[in-house]
């Protein structure tokens, strides 16, 4: 598989009152053609900022790009002008957002909102765009698209709005689709439908997907590869099986451990004690040090470098250093086959 997007050493900060919040710190990852990369992490770990940086939707100011590169088709997106970015957004890279209730313009028909991108990027006439809009709505599974295309967002249900969002995002056959928590605001049955739809479309169109989520169930169902983010950094990346069955980073253990298990009697849900670091003043060492049960002296002082576990699996943890004591995966983090299909 060939690489379509490479993020290298990306750092993004936000100016707030009196301090600079370093939301994303030296993040690097690649995206292959046609794969689904899931970026997981808790709120505030920098996953949404990373995603929005790719199509430069981070508002600047207060946001600013401190450094790094985002290579798409060999060109650095961070060096592009705003005009050049306009021809990439929606055409090459599209995005769908978390809350379908608020991410569609309430004063414009769905048809017009789909047509806009088509008319801009593919020079379609109004009529062509309308017909293509009907096709797209049919593709995303909206019944009677000829009627629905003339309706306004408030006449759609939540699930249908997210379908319409997907139709908008896919209208110009983008190479990359960034889905920022696409199912968080939906109820579980609709969630499954939306994920299934995304998988189907990926098969048909070969779109690469970056899926931002904090729901490990969603990850297990849809992702090819996973990047775990914590405190503005990627702490572990690997194929989905590697992350679920051979996790190496204590934070990943914690994440997996806090997933409710179906086949075990649990009195209480497991949590990771403590709270994430303040990114206005990030720790010099590993960001997880204050919450890590295996923390050593070195962890607080030096950031561990990415250590390869296999050709596809990397983790940034001092436990992987040869001088570190051997620590086995805690039992709570061991995932049974049934657990992940929640």
């Amino acid at each position: 598989m060939s690489e379509i997007l490479e993020v290298k050493d990306l750092s993004v900060s936000f100016d707030t009152y009196g301090s600079e919040v370093k939301a994303v710190r030296n993040v690097s990852f690649q995206l292959m053609k046609g794969e689904t990369l899931a970026i997981v992490g808790e709120s505030g770990s920098g996953k949404s900022v990373t995603a929005q940086s790719i199509i430069r939707l981070v508002p600047t100011p207060p946001g600013k790009f401190i450094g790094g590169e985002i290579r798409f088709n060999g060109e650095d997106l961070l060096q592009k002008s705003e005009k050049q970015m306009e021809s990439i957004r929606g055409k090459e890279i599209s995005m769908i957002f978390q809350d379908p209730m608020t991410s569609l313009n309430p004063t414009m028909t769905i048809g017009k909102q789909i047509a806009e991108g088509l008319m801009k990027h593919q020079n379609m006439s109004k009529k062509e765009a309308h017909l293509r809009g009907i096709q797209l709505l049919k593709l995303v599974g909206i019944p009677t698209p000829e009627v629905r295309i003339k309706q306004y967002p408030h006449q759609y249900s939540g699930g249908m709005r997210q379908r319409a969002m997907i139709a908008i995002a896919l209208s110009c056959n983008p190479k990359i689709l960034i889905a920022d928590e696409p199912t968080t605001a939906l109820d579980v049955t609709i969630q499954a439908q939306i994920l299934e739809l995304m998988r189907q479309i990926q098969e048909e169109m070969g779109t690469a997907i970056i899926l931002i989520t904090h729901d490990l169930g969603v990850v297990a169902n849809t992702a090819t590869r996973v990047a775990v983010m914590y405190g503005g950094k990627i702490v572990e990346t690997g194929m989905v099986d590697e992350i679920f069955f051979e996790p190496k980073h204590p934070y990943t253990w914690g994440l997996l451990g806090s997933m409710p298990k179906l086949d075990k009697e649990q009195e209480e849900l497991q949590v990771i004690p403590g709270s994430p670091p303040d990114l206005a003043d990030p720790p010099t060492g590993c960001p997880f040090v204050t919450r890590c049960p295996y923390a050593m002296n070195v962890c607080g002082e030096h950031m561990p470098s990415d250590t390869s576990v296999s050709s596809t699996h990397e983790a940034a943890c001092w436990l992987l250093d040869e001088r570190a004591p051997k620590v086995d995966i805690p039992e709570s983090a061991i995932v049974g086959g049934n657990d992940i299909y929640v």
């Binding site: 939707l57 990439i88 929606g90 995005m95 909102q113 991108g117 969002m165």
Partner: peptide, 15 residues
């Protein structure tokens, strides 16, 4: 600051 403005921008529409 609404979400749908972000959506509009993500479609590649000009400012």
């Amino acid at each position: 600051n609404r979400d749908y403005i972000k959506t509009a921008k993500s479609k590649g529409l000009s400012e």
